[in-house]
Write a protein that binds this DNA or RNA. Structure first.
Lengths: 258, 258
DNA sequence: ATTCAGTTTCCACAATGTGGAAACTTGTGT
DNA sequence: ACACAAGTTTCCACATTGTGGAAACTGAAT
């Protein structure tokens, strides 16, 4: 065997399958999708159910994720202090600009949303914590790429994930991406104008830790009707001030890179 | 074997260990806590790392939960249509009373916090989503028990989990519990005065779905210095109005129980 | 240089996980 | 009422995978 524990891989693949499904799934569907015999899938699910990670509706025999998963949180995602330090600043920022504020990190060439403080006017669907999004067409992603040495992300963002188009404004060539990142580096913050296909505008800044490395990004976002182009400079300044406050909490000193 | 997949149990036990830890853990600690040989623990962790559920800090060799966990967490929360419907109402309620608002469900005789909207004055640590708490000494728990037929919870709450004491005010006898639940049923909402040992006061109401069943509860909570006894009737009315709004979204019609 | 504690790799072995077959359950069509 | 189909659950012989002790490796402390 290759070094991995096959049963663990299989069990987690089933959890991810259920996580991605919009509806509850039965054994046959799960077996088929995960390319397992029904009896094997059944045993995995029985174990996951026993532990609370999966629940089965007794009437329909179908499975869904269990609430036990919500307990899996402790030291925040490899960055122990990030969320704790960021939260108070995020709240102040939201109060100040009255739009939704997100915190995200870069992981394998994509952004992952870590925290969120919603604007009080926000309605409808909101970004789920844990959601991933492409780095090249989000303000959060672009700003982290702009302030991170290229060799640390090029392979994953450009070669592996690719610069996929999501809307008419998505960046899809390397030249366009590098030019945009240079602009962002000079400006200090990034903007995305619906590049993921959503009718939102986001303004994002970088968060550095004590070594000077970019460890996260913060954004202000809202519908394009609220976050108008005219507000961008003001929001840019606000998000940069918040990023600096968080960075200082993490021990960052501008001009003192290690 | 008993029917469970041992390796899956072990892997998830390790995830829970990391989830409960406030700091990163090394192989020896993990092996010791999970009663596994280091080599076995190492192989589990290698598999979990490969899949993104665990991350290892290369400098310290210590492990913590990985971002893949957040995706599953997000999926669980997203699946609960409850959360989507509740959120806007929770925000309005928080705006109105300016205290923290929680949403919780009952799961295996305990409450699980599902959503939270923090009061703008809130400082310091806050209740983690996914956290569990005993049902008998939380306003959220008591109100769900009061409006749920006893046979659906008695075994788990009273027999399995037990009426443990957490403070001088905790209910620890069945008679006292039933009397309290009857009071709550008549009043329509529950209050807890630091019964879990925390210096907070909570006021909670029940949320019903289209079948009339209690599916969740909503609470307003804050320090006892802010949520004074004099405010309880006002807060009770506010939380009940919010619960009704959410219940109606879920198809509930008072007096039309199925 | 040596020691120690923790981490990682190796590998012989046996216990666990596998998956096909069978049994069971439920819904549908006649 | 019966037959059939599809999906779920259980059983069990078997072999592959997971196990865990030993050894090797790593880095820090002395």
């Amino acid at each position: 065997m290759s070094g991995s524990v096959q049963s663990v891989e299989r069990a987690l693949a089933i959890l991810e399958l259920l996580g991605n499904a919009d509806i509850h799934l039965g054994i046959s569907e799960i077996a088929q999708s995960s390319k397992l015999p029904p009896s094997t899938a059944h045993r995995m699910l029985a174990t996951l159910m026993e532990l609370g990670y999966v629940e089965q509706n007794p009437e329909t025999s179908k499975y869904t994720l269990g609430v036990r998963i919500l307990q899996l949180r402790g030291a925040v995602i490899g960055h122990l202090t990030l969320g704790v330090h960021a939260m108070p600043v995020m709240k102040l920022l939201m109060n100040r600009v009255n739009e939704t504020v997100h915190l995200a990190i870069l992981n394998k060439g994509e952004i992952v949303y870590i925290e969120r403080v919603e604007g009080l006017k926000t309605q409808g669907m909101y970004t789920r914590i844990g959601k991933r999004a492409p780095a090249h067409c989000t303000a959060l992603g672009k700003v982290m790429l702009a302030f991170t040495p290229q060799h640390l992300w090029y392979e994953q963002v450009v070669r592996r994930n690719g610069l996929k188009r999501f809307s008419a404004t998505t960046i899809t060539t390397e030249d366009a991406l590098f030019a945009e990142l240079q602009r962002i580096y000079k400006l200090g913050y990034a903007v995305d104008n619906g590049e993921t296909g959503e009718a939102v505008r986001c303004v994002a800044g970088p968060i550095h830790d004590y070594t000077g490395s970019v460890v996260a990004a913060l954004s202000i976002s809202g519908p394009q009707t609220q976050v108008t182009p005219g507000r961008v400079p003001e929001l840019g300044a606000a998000v940069l001030a918040a990023c600096q406050a968080i960075s200082e909490k993490l021990g960052y000193k501008a001009g003192h890179e290690l």
